[in-house]
Design a protein around this nucleic acid. Structure first.
Length: 832
RNA sequence: GCCCCAGUAGCCCAAUGGCAGAGGCAGCAGACUUAAAAUCUGUUCAGUGUCGGUUCGAGUCCGACCUGGGGUACCA
């Protein structure tokens, strides 16, 4: 080859990613280089990717997420930190069960086969994980401790059972937590969710609402703002008051004190009717006999609505009169009590005071049923009774007895004082967050370790009898959804003596939401084989909170909220000494194709293994990371894995062109290239602090280009600075392209592994330049550039700037009002 | 409706309030080649969504709006 650029003509100088991928995994395995030392000599860093669900082989989304997490882990290692970067599987869940039904098999077969496939793919993908800590949540040795933790929650009253209308997925035949209902449909399968009244297990996450909110202060700045915002909205703190209305006794029916929650106690005088949630027990309790039939048929109608229909905001208001009247605690006014479905049974108290003038929903209802509308806050807008538009803004109270004349805020305070003085109300805080419904009527999950005894009630399975394992003899149709757990049909499993009294009793047949399993796995990684406790508290306190958590934003209010809740409970139990599990969170973007998420129905899926076969692991990884900032989506149609491969080959070829020996003294090398190398190191340090992985790669490309130029130009291949630059390329490249970097490192004459050699220190003296280009502006516009010494004084710089010919021309003799000097880089002259 | 995020070159994206361009893709030209691919070299292309404000100076800060994306939604 006649080009001077070292392009590959000999076989030894042709970049062959297949050869690299065939060679290095065995070397890395034998070195065991990715397990932490944990000897306290180095700063510990826990880097964690959200563990995968074994749904099949890895896909493009995994490839992006794990590339990002691996960059963070490898960076920490190069910085000399003791890195924990484990991997495991979230291996309970419905898809395994559905697959088992289809194939007349046990869910474990499908699950563990997929885990093996994914594990092989992860190894090929070059993830720098500590494989010795591998866990699976469906292993009895894991779920034993999920059960143990459930029992600690149960002991504290944080796990309880109650009857309640719950979200029901008719397809999956199981209940769903609030967080798992997306736009009225099942998060998993998209089926319209309906309501069903069932007795179910809950975790009392509402007890922690305030702490979940307040502790976000610890996360602000290191978690994406939008995730914090989503959690804040989900928790939905709302300040207001409880105000008790008395429902008057009527013939045989007794009087009834009905509290309502309101954020607007100032509008109490405007309450012209009262509404109870139609599906709340209270509605049936207070309805007069002659209205009972109408209410019951209305309740039937409401029940038949899907969540989607119910949530539609355009739906006209419906409801029925109960025949009863409530007394306003401030005015004593008697107002009708209605039952309607626009009031929710499980928010607030399940009943409201309706103030149609100042709440649009109440106004819509009032207009539908011809009820009184009374304006009590004058906002200057048109009277809502006429306009049909409720007014919610600031204003002056009118028609409101003692409150009249006050501002909204004054009236809110005074109204609360007044009802409090009467004993009919108090200031309160209400949350949108509901308790976490954790029981599921399916098989492939952690059994709830409770035994139901007719005399002793709910009895905890004693700790020493854990785990309560799943029966192994169920296959195919045995697992089909029937609305009750398949476990209920296994008599020999269900029927056990009561641990307390010995009488015949039955096991609870529900299993736990898989989000329970994933709420504590990051703790289990610390001591994955411990069999005396879920985790080693001392070691956990050493390693946690997780220093960098990486995963998709789809878990913003599911897994992340639940895990935060778990951590706080464990803190209260004295099992951990921190209250937030994840100190920093990185949400990687999605991988799109043609502007859209990849999906079977669109037919725009890109197969990961095909990309890997074609371009190589390193090129795919580099493409993922280089395409955009980590949190932005990557559109596979917009990127170029072949371009990435080209760059990798360029970098790799440097290995053949460095002719100095390992250990050559860089001080003897060309200063200009050394400056580029050390400037790169210094900048990368700052960029990595801000997760700007894509920019780091751009800087790495520059360094490769500069090294190439030095080799082909005057500096020459034998210059020690060239070796230094190529070695820095290898170390930085190891963050993104482990195979290429490792091979380059070897070609540079070093033994494996480049992953752990560390970064050379930045030589500060190489960063300072003798002269810089100073910008001369007139009124903010650049008019000249002058070479000046870096240490020029402000006065000298100003003098040079004033003397500039082009500046003189622009100023044209005008007087100067002000001169801003930022030596040595800038002078701005402002004329009058 | 409310809340968050983002709008810079044909495309993906850089730019501590101080020269709008670091890097890549695509394009164009050249070198090498019988030719092509690969490789190498060089190079074209925007004034930063709109309007206003703060400032000596705004892509960057503030306000309003537009567009796109995401979240949430009878939550009293």
């Amino acid at each position: 080859m006649s080009t001077p650029s070292g392009s590959g003509q000999s076989d030894e100088n042709i970049y062959d990613f297949r050869a690299l991928e065939a060679r290095w995994p065995a070397v890395w395995d034998s070195m065991d280089s990715f397990a932490p030392i944990d000897d306290g000599n180095r700063e510990r860093k826990y880097v964690l990717d959200m563990f995968p669900y074994p749904s099949g082989d890895l896909h493009m989304g995994h490839a992006e997420a794990f590339a990002m997490g691996d960059v963070a882990a490898r960076w920490a290692r190069q910085k000399g930190q003791d890195v924990l970067h484990p991997i495991g599987w979230d291996s309970f869940g419905l898809p395994a069960e559905n697959a088992a039904i289809q194939r007349n098999a046990h869910p474990a077969e499908w699950t563990y086969a997929n885990i093996d496939t994914q594990a092989r793919s992860f190894k090929r993908y070059g993830i720098s994980a500590d494989w010795s800590r591998r866990i699976h949540t469906s292993d009895p040795s894991y779920y034993r401790w999920t059960q143990w933790l459930f029992l600690r929650f149960f002991d504290k009253g944080l796990a309880y059972r109650r009857d309640s209308p719950v979200n029901w997925c008719p397809k999956d035949q199981t209940v769903l937590a609030n967080e798992q209902v997306v736009n009225g449909t099942c998060e998993r399968c998209g089926t319209d969710v309906t309501k069903k009244s069932l007795n179910q297990w809950y975790f009392k996450i509402t007890d922690y609402a305030d702490r979940l909110l307040e502790d976000m202060d610890q996360l602000s700045g290191s978690w994406p703002e939008r995730v914090l915002a989503m959690q804040r909205n989900w928790i939905g703190r709302s300040e207001g008051a409880h105000v008790t209305f008395t429902i008057e006794a009527d013939s045989d029916l007794p009087a009834y004190d009905a509290p309502v929650f309101t954020t607007r106690p100032d509008t109490l005088y405007g309450a012209t009717f009262f509404v109870v949630a139609a599906d709340a027990p209270l509605a049936l309790e207070l309805v007069k006999p002659e209205h009972r039939a109408a209410l019951e048929s209305y309740r039937e109608k409401v029940k038949s609505l899907s969540e989607i229909e119910r949530q539609s905001t355009e739906r006209p208001k419906t409801g029925v009169f109960t025949g009863r009247y409530a007394l306003n605690p401030l005015s004593g006014e008697k107002i009708p009590v209605w039952a309607a479905d626009y009031v929710l049974a499980d928010y607030g108290t399940g009943a409201i005071m309706a103030v149609p003038a100042h709440d649009q929903r109440d106004l819509d209802f009032a207009r539908a049923f011809d009820l009184t509308v009374r304006t009590v806050v004058d906002t200057g807008a048109e009277d809502p009774a006429m306009s049909g538009v409720a007014t919610t803004g600031e204003g002056t109270l009118v028609n409101s007895g003692e409150l009249s004349g006050l501002s909204k805020d004054e009236a809110i305070a005074k109204a609360i004082d007044m009802v409090a003085a009467h004993g009919t109300g108090e200031r309160t805080v209400n949350y949108r967050l509901r308790d976490w419904l954790i029981s599921r009527q399916r098989f492939w999950g952690t059994p709830i370790p409770i035994i139901h005894c007719t005399t002793c009630g709910e009895v905890a399975v004693p700790d020493d009898q854990l785990p309560v394992t799943l029966p192994e003899n169920l296959r195919g149709e045995d697992l089909a959804p029937k609305g009750t757990s398949p476990l209920a049909a296994v008599a020999e499993w269900v029927n056990v003596p009561c641990p307390t009294c010995g009488a015949p009793a039955q096991r609870d047949t529900d299993t736990m939401d898989t989000f329970v399993d994933s709420s504590w796995y990051y703790l289990r990684f610390i001591s994955p084989t411990l069999d005396s406790a879920p985790f080693d508290t001392e070691a956990v306190n050493r390693w946690l909170p997780v220093g960098q958590y990486v995963g998709g934003v789809e878990h913003a209010i599911l897994h992340l909220l639940y895990s935060r809740f778990f951590t706080k409970v464990l803190f209260d139990l004295g099992l951990v000494n921190f209250t937030e599990p994840f100190a920093a969170l990185l949400n990687q973007g999605q991988v799109l194709n043609g502007g859209k998420a990849m999906s079977k129905s669109l037919g725009n899926g890109v197969d990961l293994s095909e990309q890997l076969d074609r371009f190589g692991v390193d090129a795919v990884r580099l493409t993922m990371v280089f395409a955009s900032p980590p949190e932005d989506d990557v559109d596979w149609a917009d990127v170029s894995p072949s371009g990435a491969a080209k760059f990798l080959a360029r970098a790799w070829r440097l290995g053949a062109d460095v002719t100095s020996d390992p250990g050559a003294d860089p001080d003897a090398g060309a200063g200009q290239l050394r400056s580029v190398t050390h400037r790169t190191l210094a900048d990368v340090e700052v960029l990595m602090q801000h997760n700007k992985f894509n920019v780091v790669i751009a800087r790495l490309m520059e360094l490769v280009n500069a090294t190439r130029k030095a080799i082909d130009g005057d500096v020459g291949a034998a210059d020690p600075a060239v070796r230094e630059a190529a070695e820095v390329v290898a170390v930085l490249l190891s963050l993104f392209a482990p195979y290429t970097a490792e091979d380059l490192w070897e070609r540079l004459g070093h033994p494996a592994s480049v992953a752990t050699v560390g970064l050379p220190p930045v030589e500060q003296r190489l960063l300072v330049q003798d002269t810089v280009v100073a910008i001369v502006q007139v009124q903010g516009k650049v008019r000249d550039r002058i070479d000046v010494p870096v240490d020029i004084s402000a006065a000298d710089l100003e003098a040079l700037a004033r003397a500039s010919g082009s500046v003189q021309r622009i100023l044209d003799g005008r007087d100067i009002r002000q001169v801003i000097v930022r030596a040595p880089k800038l002078v701005n002259i402002v004329p009058c």
